[in-house]
Design a protein around this nucleic acid. Structure first.
Lengths: 223, 223
DNA sequence: AAATTAATTTGAAATATTTTAAAAACTGCA
DNA sequence: TGCAGTTTTTAAAATATTTCAAATTAATTT
């Protein structure tokens, strides 16, 4: 499901946008005002951002520039009415498109899809702020990067991608190490320990998610 | 220089568009009508297409659909006036943006650039003062030129254009050396070493950007 | 509660990967 | 052909990861 960040300083507009997008099964996060918006950007990964450019304490262009410091995420500016100069300014600052209020639902969704179509599809899973990204070979929590070894990285990736499923040590060895590996089951434990420790350090409640199934193996549980 | 294909059935409009774009150094190809346009698409590679949707013998949407059969090239539709329904239809058929006549030069160029920015091959990238320029075959930092060999140059270009993404040695060999190369993975290391050394010499903090991902490969990180 | 079984922790040895450095092979061109 | 710059290969030194076994801790069974 695509994650959308809505940034506006009017509660009502946020609700309206979310309502529009609801039937299309986007996962909407509402940010009331630029500060909150930028904070979310720092903490999470989004597929697209809808940004209102008429906000009192910080104008949309500054927000646009700020976002571009951190991320390449597609940005659609939302403007009150057509103002050619502003549009050009926004596009130059790194926005990808704009749409004017009042807009119709269909056009909004069509524009979002046109942008999402161009975005490179990534291979990732996210759980309560913990992001596993195969393309980047990175695990991160709220923009803190957790340095993992290759085995640790594959291990957690497999588990996160199959929440609820138990894997025995031998299954994990087959899947992560590769079939016909001579490695012993106990070795998995060491990697699990090291991995848990590293993730605990950045403040993610790993023990709520990564469970030991006594006598069987390990599983990742979806909260 | 970016290649632009203009498709319209009015000679006058083609001239006008070309005139608008002239100061921005685009390489414009004019196609009078949809047939000619589709023929060019088959014969040449373009960076972007400007497509008028009001043409008599074949409507713009059919052209749009046809183009998408052959190519992923970014398409901007040009419409006579705002017609919401039509816009949505075009976007759904694979167009990326639209602009209404009469339009202003600045907005047209801004929209083209926004699309070209997302399109894959960039001719230059800049990161914290380090400039990679394909047209000049030059890498420079604060006006100091760093002399690179062709392999080194492609290598850093690929990485800088895809910040965050890890590339394995084999992927790099496929992408830089070309598929089916017999070259060994370790060879990449040598080029990496030499390149790092040359860039370090001019004072750019290359080690903050160009990272080794242990057990996997290399990546460029955006700071 | 004691006995049993399994998981975790620990640290050191074994392996694997990357870096460094230098030599060998190759390429385009005068 | 021979040169100068480039690319590739190779081997060693430096780093980082993985493994494994012993000691400890925790959970389960009797």
């Amino acid at each position: 499901m695509k994650k959308v960040l809505l940034i506006d300083d009017e509660e009502r507009m946020l609700e309206l946008l979310a309502l529009y997008l609801k039937p299309y099964h986007y996962d909407c996060r509402k940010a009331l005002g630029p500060k909150e918006g930028l904070q979310y950007i720092e903490e999470e990964r989004f597929d697209i951002v809808l940004l209102d450019i008429m906000m009192p304490d910080m104008d949309g262009w500054s927000v646009c520039r700020e976002i571009r410091q951190h991320s390449d995420v597609p940005i659609i500016m939302v403007t009150a009415r057509e103002q050619k100069v502003d549009i050009v300014k926004g596009l130059k600052l790194g926005a990808d498109d704009y749409i004017t209020k009042p807009f119709n639902e269909e056009e909004l969704v069509a524009r979002m899809n046109a942008l999402l179509r161009r975005a490179k599809p990534g291979n990732h899973v996210e759980m309560d702020g913990l992001l596993w990204d195969r393309d980047r070979f990175e695990l991160s929590y709220k923009n803190q990067y957790i340095k993992l070894t290759p085995k640790e990285f594959s291990l957690i990736g497999l588990l996160m991608q199959n929440p609820g499923r138990v894997y025995s040590r031998n299954q994990l060895i087959d899947l992560v190490w590769g079939m016909y590996s001579e490695t012993e089951g106990r070795t998995v434990d060491s990697h699990v320990r090291n991995m848990r420790e590293k993730i605990r350090e950045v403040g993610f409640p790993i023990d709520d998610y990564f469970h030991t199934v006594w006598g069987v193996g390990y599983k990742w549980i979806r909260k």
